[in-house]
Simulated assay, not measured.
Amino acid sequence: MSLQRANNLSWCLINCFRRNSYYTVKKALELGVNDGNKDPDICIKGWVKNLQNHKGVMFMHVNDGTASQHLQVIVPQPLASTVDATFGSCVEVKGVLKESLGKGQHVELISSSVEVIGPCDPFEFPIKQRARHSPQYTRDYLHLRPKSNIFSALLRIRNVASMAVHSFFQDNGFMFIHTPILVTNDCEGACEVFKVEPLFTGASNSSGGDSDSEENDDSRGPQCVSDSIGTPAPSSQKEHFFGQPVFLTVSGQLHLEVMTGALTKVYNFGPCFRAENSHGSFHLSEFYMVEAELAFINHLNDLLTVSFSLHVLETYLVKKIPKANCSQFFFSLSSLTNSYLQYSQWGCDLDKEHEMYLADAVGGRPVFVTDYPASLKPFYALRNEDCQTV
């Protein structure tokens, strides 16, 4: 392709984008009335979050998920009588931003045209206008849950927090590593794992190569559905899909430790799966975890400094994160009369009650526990000079 043709193509793409471009609700709210808006006519697309009619004028709150605040759209007469928008419908609105005289917003959009590009029946729509739906209720409508104010706010917070984690590690010279989801180990035996096996017993990848034979295709084809559903997973190692037992990862730590032998500073931010028999809020079967590994660390304080400087914590913690010596902690427990704490002794692992006690003792903040019993840690954990703690 010649340079002239490439330039012409780029110009066509730019013009096409301009013709089809529109403002997000977040950008419209940030734009204001006279904040450099050379084109007074703007176009927004989103979903109707609230709708009411007052003296022939239609008031709509429109949001596209980019902001927590809705943009108020005013549909004057005679346009209001022709608009067939309802709560939950998807609309495209064109109009002019004006300073709002009402409370709760500084700008509003005076519409010149409203097009319903996705109708919605408010009677059949499970999410109702001006109703507070509990998480238990929206859980029955997973495909509609992001439309609720609470869940959409959680997704925006999660997005900001995730980007902050990546920004911190990237700015400090860490390399992001995609550790595998399917693994053959349980990462130091820290918890129960989910075993992965194919649904159909005929499925097998133990041959280690691709095969085009009809026999292989038939064993994994749709005709096996009626005969294989509910069949127990194969127990013989030769019948495993990967030739050996495979599990969902519980941690990417082991893979990161290997990477530090060549890349020095690495981190991972990915999903973990743990088959713990718990139905409370302390343990989840699936969650995302931040893990980092560094080479050439000479002292524990080097690691604590990196952990504390994570600006996601710095934003909310004014004081420095305290440290608790594990040996001193167990010595202090011996003088307590609390029934759920007095039976602990040196060499035992910390229970959830111990962790909560430590957090309460420092004012409900995170706490670093040092000098942990070496017998409870992996073989490669650096021993202290007493050879009893790490």
Score class of each variant (00 low, 15 high):
Q72F: 02
T82G: 04
M58Q: 04
V93G: 14
H61Y: 05
F59Q: 08
T86G: 07
Q69C: 12
V62Y: 05
Q69R: 15
V93C: 15
V57P: 02
M60P: 00
P78W: 02
P78M: 15
T82V: 12
H70M: 12
F87L: 13
Q72H: 03
V83T: 14
V57E: 03
D84L: 10
V91E: 10
P78S: 14
V83Q: 08
V83W: 04
A85P: 03
H54I: 15
A80S: 08
H70F: 09
V57Y: 04
H61A: 12
V91H: 11
A80W: 00
M58P: 02
Q77S: 10
S81K: 01
V91Y: 09
T66A: 07
L71I: 04
V57W: 03
V57A: 05
A80P: 01
E92P: 03
Q69E: 14
L71K: 05
T86K: 14
G56D: 05
Q72T: 03
V93L: 14
M60K: 02
D64F: 15
N53E: 13
F59M: 07
L79C: 00
S68R: 09
G65F: 06
V73K: 06
K55C: 08
H61P: 01
Q77M: 08
V75K: 00
L71M: 10
V75R: 00
V91M: 10
C90A: 13
D64K: 13
V73D: 06
H61Q: 08
N53S: 11
A67S: 15
H54M: 15
H61M: 11
V93W: 14
T66D: 02
V62F: 06
V93Y: 11
G56K: 12
V62S: 06
H61G: 04
S89L: 09
A80H: 01
F59T: 09
D64N: 14
G88A: 13
A85K: 01
V75C: 01
D64A: 14
T82E: 13
H54R: 15
G65N: 04
V62Q: 09
T82I: 05
G65H: 05
L79A: 00
V83R: 07
I74F: 01
D84A: 12
A80M: 01
P78A: 14
N53W: 10
S89G: 04
L79S: 00
T66Y: 08
G56H: 08
K55E: 13
M60C: 05
T66F: 07
S68K: 04
A85N: 03
A67W: 12
V57K: 04
Q77E: 06
V75W: 00
Q77F: 01
T86W: 09
H70C: 13
G88T: 08
